[in-house]
Amino acid sequence: MNIAYVSNVVYPFVKGGAEKRIYEEGTRLVKRGHSVTVYGRHFWDGPKEQEFDGLTLRAVSPERELYAGDRRSIGEAVEFSKDLLRPLQRHRREHDVVVASVFPYLPVLTAGLVTGIARTPLVTIWHEVWGPYWNEYLGAMGPAGRAVELCVTRVPQYPVAVSGVTADRLAGIGPARESIAVVPNGIDADRIGAVEPVSTGFDVLFVGRLIEEKNVDALLQAFDVVAAEFDCRLGIVGDGPARETLERTAEDLHHRDRVSFLGFLDDYDEVLAQMRAATVFASPSRREGFGITLVEAMAADCTVVAVRHPQSAAEEVVGDAGFLTEPTVTALVGGLRSALQGERPQTQPTVAAKRYDWDRIAEQSERVYAHAVASYGST
């Protein structure tokens, strides 16, 4: 197959889960005999079109800042969608299937227009479905965000969700549940296992963007309780708009000297080295479309403590390979206490993590794309 991916950001020049999925999956599909082109912004050095690790990178829009303040730039999404139209239209007959990463939504509308004209199947990758969260994210503009998300669900497509939770939420606003394939995000399990741990790690580690939904304030409060019982330290890796508030919360803890904010770590191996050295990986997030850090932590052989929540796929992803609690301080105390006492989950975390190895994910995606090509026009 000749496969085209549409993503305004391109890994490894921009680091993020959606673009990393395209890179890891795409490079493996090339090794399996397919041709892969990525349409994105010109974040790399050199010509607008070039080969990179077997992929054809095709820049359709110049490099641009992705954020306006703490939120993704609407203007950036509009510009990329506009700039995508002519190049994708020009090369439309080269591709057997177009695969669009849904966020930031507007490029899917452009891809839907071009694939409709070219009579080419469009596969969409849904990492999250925001629904009511739009109101919190955009305030007064929230209804507009929800309208765009709904509009994208109406584009003729073969939808793929990264988890059953995300698939269920997508079915609630658009496609029939049986039409949505579930193909999770992945990891390189062997690479994670080969990373050398840092010499002095943390007993409890959190990795993620510091936003309200990650529920890190509850983790801080729970850690303060267990720190009275155990000689332990908490490391928080990540940055975000809630960092200053969380740092103030940490200052009020009885055991504030055992909490460290490491900020955002540019080097992925440095993050993995922290995971490899940690005893417990705590992720109290109330909203996760998938939760790739959970799988990375399991591959690093951490004991994962995560929470159950209707808007989170953590229970689906972790299963019995970690401890799952309610997203409250009291419940988190129980989970942390069990893990710090040395209790281990029913399933070995490293074994569970191998289900998400990128080689397996690429094979699953290959089947979805082949099905879209074979069935397009007959459904």
Rank of each mutant, 00 (worst) to 15 (best):
V307S: 07
E251C: 09
R248T: 15
A300E: 06
D217G: 15
F223H: 13
E288I: 04
T347N: 12
A321R: 04
G335R: 05
F264I: 15
G342R: 04
D320N: 10
V225A: 03
L332T: 11
A222F: 02
L262K: 09
E251T: 09
A277H: 08
E315L: 07
F230P: 05
P349N: 11
A300G: 09
A218M: 10
P241F: 11
G240T: 12
T325G: 03
A282M: 06
A250L: 04
L262Q: 05
V329R: 06
A250F: 02
A228N: 08
A306E: 13
S285N: 12
L246H: 04
V271A: 06
I236N: 09
G238S: 13
G289S: 00
A282T: 09
S283P: 13
A314P: 04
A321Y: 04
A314D: 09
V226D: 08
G263A: 07
T245K: 14
E244G: 12
V305Y: 00
A314M: 07
S260F: 14
A297Y: 01
F290K: 09
C302K: 03
E229W: 14
R243C: 11
S283K: 11
G322C: 06
S338N: 05
G322H: 01
R233E: 10
L253V: 03
L324H: 14
T347G: 08
E316I: 09
R248C: 12
E343A: 00
R344Q: 11
R344I: 07
G235K: 04
D257G: 09
F290P: 03
D257I: 02
Q341Y: 03
D320Y: 10
Q346T: 15
V329L: 00
A228H: 14
V304S: 05
D266T: 14
H309N: 03
L246N: 07
H309E: 03
R344K: 11
G240K: 15
D320K: 12
R276C: 09
H254M: 09
G235A: 02
G319Q: 08
E296K: 10
A278Q: 01
V304R: 01
T249P: 10
E315I: 07
V226L: 02
G335P: 07
E288C: 02
R243P: 05
A242L: 13
F230C: 03
G289T: 03
R308T: 14
P345D: 02
L336F: 10
T303M: 11
T330M: 02
L219W: 00
Q221N: 10
R256Q: 13
E229N: 12
E244Q: 12
D266E: 12
T330F: 01
F264L: 14
G289V: 05
D239W: 02
I236M: 03
V318Q: 02
A313D: 09
Q346M: 13
I292A: 00
R243T: 11
P310W: 06
T325V: 09
D266M: 06
I236R: 11
R243V: 11
P349Q: 01
L246D: 02
R248A: 15
V295G: 06
V317L: 08
E315M: 01
R276W: 05
E251Y: 08
